[in-house]
Design a protein around this nucleic acid. Structure first.
Lengths: 228, 228
DNA sequence: TGCATATTCTATTGTTTACTTGAATACTCG
DNA sequence: CGAGTATTCAAGTAAACAATAGAATATGCA
C-alpha cells in the first residue's frame, strides 16, 4: 500500500480505536449505564458507581473527549448526559455482542439469579409480549427520578426500597413484571424475590428503558398510570 | 447496592469491557478489516498490516480470546476468520459511531481525497442506487482472492495493480464506480484517479463488501460477470 | 525419525492507564 | 467582593499493554 494511504488509514483507525477505548473500561461502562437512565452530576455518579469524585470526573473527561457524553453547567453543578441516542444504541449493541462472545456473562447471570431463586421460566420475548399487551402489572423499581426521566408505558414506580411497604398497592391477582436499569442491574431480581415471598406471581424483565427504546418502542415521561 | 449485586455487575462489565478492549487498538481494527475480506493466515496478515509475525500472532490471540475471530489449522498454516456476521456488523456500527463522534475522521478523509483530486460530487446514497440498479460499471479493485471470497453483485475484478493494463476491457461510455475494502481503504481512490486521468467518468464508493452485507444486501461469490 | 516451516510462547523494554491525594479553578450566593 | 462548594487539574505510583527478539512447539513431508 502506498505511504500516504497507510498514514491516512492508521490515523483513522487511531480515532476509531479512541472511541472504542473510551468504552473499554468497566467503570466507564457503569457510568454510561447510569447516564443512560438520566442526566446526572459528577457527585451523583461518583456515589452511585462508588468512585472518588476526582476519579469519576476523569473518566467523564475521557468519555467527553470521545464525545460519548456531553456536559452542561447548571449553576454550580455540571450535569452530564449521553450524547445522543446513537450512543445508547451502541451500548446495547456492545452488550449484545459481548453476551454472545463471552459465555461467562450468561453463566454469571444464571448463577446470580439462581442463588436468589429468581430463575426465569418464561423467556424474555414472551415477557415483552405481555408487557406490550398490558397483560401484567409492570413495575419500575428504580429510584423515582429515573422513572420520571423515562419509563416503560404503563409502568408504575415503586422504588426497590419502598417495595415492602407498598405491596398493598399492587393487585394480587395479576402477575407482576419488574424491571430496572438493564440486563446487568439486579434491583429487579431483588424485587421479584420479595414479591414471590409475599405470594405474588412475579417475573424479572431483563430490559431497561435503554433496550426498550433501542428496539424502537415508545417511552413515557409523564407521571405514569396509577396502580389500578 | 448490595454487595453480591455489585460484584456480579463488576464481573459482567469486566467481560463486556474485554470485548471492547479487543477492538480498541488500531492494529487490531486493521486486522479485523483484513479478515472481513476473507480468511487469512498469520503470515499474510502480518505482511498486509506491516506487523512482525510474532506481533500479529499476539494480536490475533487477543481477538481470539474475545472470540471475535476463530482459528482453524490447515496443515502447517493456521487460518483466521471473523467469528460470525455479528462481528462484521459490530465493526460497521463502531465505525459509524466513531465517524459521528470524531469529526477528525471525516476531515482526514476529505483531505486525503481532495489531495488525490477524487473529491466526490455525488453523494454515496445516490451512488448506491446506481450500483444497485446496474446503471454503472462496478469495479472491484481489491486483490483477486478477496474478490473471489465475495463481491458486490455484477462487479468485475480488476485489481488495482492491473488497472492501467486492463483499461481497454472497460466500456468508455459508462460511468465507473470503484470500491475496495471499505470506507478507510484508499485503493478505490487510487483507481478513480487513474480512471479519470484516462478519460473515464469514475466515482469512489465508500462501501466495501462488509458494509454492503451489513445493509442486508446480497453478496456474490461466483466468478462474476465478464466485462461487457 | 528428523528436518523445515508456521506459529506461539517467554522475557524484556518502554509507554500508557487508573487511581489517589492535594491544590487550583469556576461558579453561586450572601 | 468574598466565602463556600462543585469540579477539574497535576503529580506520583502501581499496574497493564505493545513491540521486539529469541526460544519453543507443532505439523508436514522426506
Amino acid at each position: 500500500m502506498p505511504r500516504p494511504a497507510r498514514n491516512y488509514q492508521a490515523a483513522v483507525y487511531g480515532h476509531v480505536a479512541r472511541v472504542a477505548r473510551a468504552v473499554a473500561s468497566p467503570r466507564r461502562l457503569e457510568l454510561l449505564e447510569l447516564l443512560a437512565q438520566r442526566p446526572r452530576t459528577v457527585e451523583a455518579l461518583a456515589r452511585l458507581a462508588e468512585l472518588s469524585v476526582a476519579s469519576a470526573s476523569q473518566h467523564l473527561q475521557v468519555l467527553r473527549a470521545a464525545r460519548l457524553v456531553e456536559a452542561e453547567r447548571h449553576g454550580t453543578f455540571v450535569e452530564y448526559r449521553l450524547a445522543g441516542t446513537e450512543v445508547e444504541e451502541a451500548l446495547v449493541a456492545l452488550r449484545q455482542l459481548a453476551e454472545r462472545r463471552e459465555r461467562e456473562i450468561g453463566e454469571l447471570t444464571r448463577d446470580f439469579l439462581e442463588r436468589r431463586g429468581v430463575l426465569e421460566a418464561i423467556d424474555s420475548e414472551e415477557l415483552l409480549q405481555r408487557v406490550r399487551a398490558g397483560a401484567v402489572t409492570v413495575l419500575d423499581v428504580r429510584p423515582a427520578e429515573e422513572y420520571a426521566a423515562g419509563h416503560l408505558p404503563g409502568a408504575i414506580s415503586v422504588p426497590l426500597a419502598e417495595l415492602e411497604a407498598r405491596l398493598r398497592e399492587l393487585p394480587r391477582r395479576r402477575p407482576v413484571v419488574a424491571y430496572c436499569r438493564g440486563p446487568y442491574c439486579m434491583m429487579s431480581a431483588e424485587a421479584v424475590a420479595t414479591l414471590r415471598r409475599r405470594g405474588f406471581t412475579a417475573h424479572r424483565l431483563d430490559h431497561g428503558v435503554v433496550e426498550w427504546r433501542a428496539r424502537g418502542e415508545r417511552v413515557e415521561t409523564a407521571p405514569g398510570a396509577p396502580p389500578p
